[in-house]
Design a protein around this nucleic acid. Sequence first.
DNA 1: CTGTTAGCGCGTTCAA
DNA 2: TTGAACGCGCTAACAG
Lengths: 341, 341
Amino acid sequence: MVTLEAVAKEAGVSLATASRVLNGSTRQVGALTRTRVESAAAKLRYRVDSTAQTLARGMSNVVGLIVQDLTDPYFAAIADGVMRAADLHDMVVTIGTTRRDPEREIAHVASLTAQRTRVVLIAGSRDADDVMLRRFRAELDVYRATGGQVAIIGEPAFGVDTVSPLNHEGAYQLARALAGRGHQRFAVLAGPVLMLTAVERTAGFLDGLSDLGFPAPVLLHSRLDRNGGHDSALELLDMNTDVTCVFAVTDAMAVGALAAFRERGVQVPRDLSLAGFEDIPPLRDVVPALTTVRLPLARMGALALELALSHEDVPRVEPVPGEVVLRESVSDLTGASSDLV
Amino acid sequence: MVTLEAVAKEAGVSLATASRVLNGSTRQVGALTRTRVESAAAKLRYRVDSTAQTLARGMSNVVGLIVQDLTDPYFAAIADGVMRAADLHDMVVTIGTTRRDPEREIAHVASLTAQRTRVVLIAGSRDADDVMLRRFRAELDVYRATGGQVAIIGEPAFGVDTVSPLNHEGAYQLARALAGRGHQRFAVLAGPVLMLTAVERTAGFLDGLSDLGFPAPVLLHSRLDRNGGHDSALELLDMNTDVTCVFAVTDAMAVGALAAFRERGVQVPRDLSLAGFEDIPPLRDVVPALTTVRLPLARMGALALELALSHEDVPRVEPVPGEVVLRESVSDLTGASSDLV
DNA sequence: CTGTTAGCGCGTTCAA
DNA sequence: TTGAACGCGCTAACAG
């Protein structure tokens, strides 16, 4: 194990000087000495021990990211953004997945605390379970007491820096856009009853319809993932409604719904229109192309890190608007029927 | 900042005793003392400093994973498997993405060395660029000199533990399976000329055809990702061949090819059959369902970690067979034409 | 510009 | 069973 001391000895300088050359910030070392140290380090193949640095400096260069599921493209895209931003700061990223288990989420925060992680980034909505929220918040407080910064990507909460997608607004605009295509009777695959992201998107959509004077849509609850959307879609079909357009509050659910419709021989958009939310990358290869509300996922991840690193006294909320993207999966009824604006 | 010393003081015991209770392995502490320390730790909300532990023990509990692109489902699935296995060992995972840049790959190994990472896992094939390979290997050697273990997921190389998908064998069997459906004239979207994974799968497929006495297929090279497949597919169509079936060496490329075919009005499998390799999760929602060679991606990730953790003197290679999965994207010509076995 | 030295928080001998 | 003391590799005063 080659230590700084070995390098210093090899170069014939003191430990401090070697440290200044190799890892110091304020560099005030003679040119000759510098090259001597550098060549000694190269010769010995010296590599800093960043854990020792962390201990000495009382500050690490690692950012911890907590997501629910890395195989979910939504989180993968966010993680990608975080990693790109971390690169720019020469920081290292450790990722923990919760698999939607609040216990595991709390455990990850504790683990990141132990690592003396400089920043903790949390993506993904939580259930509104008071007990768990309280425990989670308490663990975050312990973490912050060690001097770390927290930022979340999702609904503002816990009084920390937040990158906040405008879920309500995006869904509201989506409702209007769908109405613009002549749809009036909707179903919403609304995801979990208690999950804030799902609730906000549903509420935004309902408000949009309500402002247009449209009747309340059929509401179906399920898990937030693909299979949740799949099951809700089957349920919807079994209800035999006169709905012409379905809004799934996540793209994953929309993809699941699409599969369910296909299984039942229901063609999108001919028989039923469909829209999602997020514009996750794999949507690119879904047929028919899915209407959605685009969120700049990678940018959101990067932004969260920047927020945390530039933390000020008062927590900031960075709103991120979504952009309605109309694609094939929504039919245009305005030519077919005439009772429209 | 609550340290072990603070806990010891609070409990009225020595630092050593507190250490033994809270983090020690061989636990030989009086029951009363133990509870005193534990309640002191709880009261003070003590959290170990694992960087200090790493320094003191000379051994960390972090596993570093290097992948090319986390938004690529292939790597995301592997990462997921690694993280699940890491959980079982109470280890933490830090992930670095190379974006297919060899320089960044080397830089990540250096960074993981600095972190005194216990294990480095490397997924994804490298180009056969001698200069880069030498530098990469050298950096790995430096890492291993610090006492860390390396395992790779891909072609055996560098003399380290390896989880090795049987690319040649899988592609060979795929060729036979496609022949079993009556196809005889093939094209291979073969990816990069120099990349081992691509080369192996291509070679396996060629050998399969050759053993059947079939003519050599049309060979097209491109990047290994979706767009590479897309572009190669367009190129193929422009060649006006009499090919009936296309093998893309990765699912991502197959998905890209599918999009290209769709753009040109070529229907799969009616006009052209298509197969990929890997069976990445999002394939589930591709239409038509894609024939492929299934690899247990998450298991491969987990296996790599286990290999590295149980490292023995001689590097081991764990072969992972692929399983041919025939799906809709391949037509059955055996009913349509009669000049077949 | 360079060297000496005192910690950073913890694990682990060695004694008691 | 417990405690005292040293060292892990490095940074950051403080001197020189």
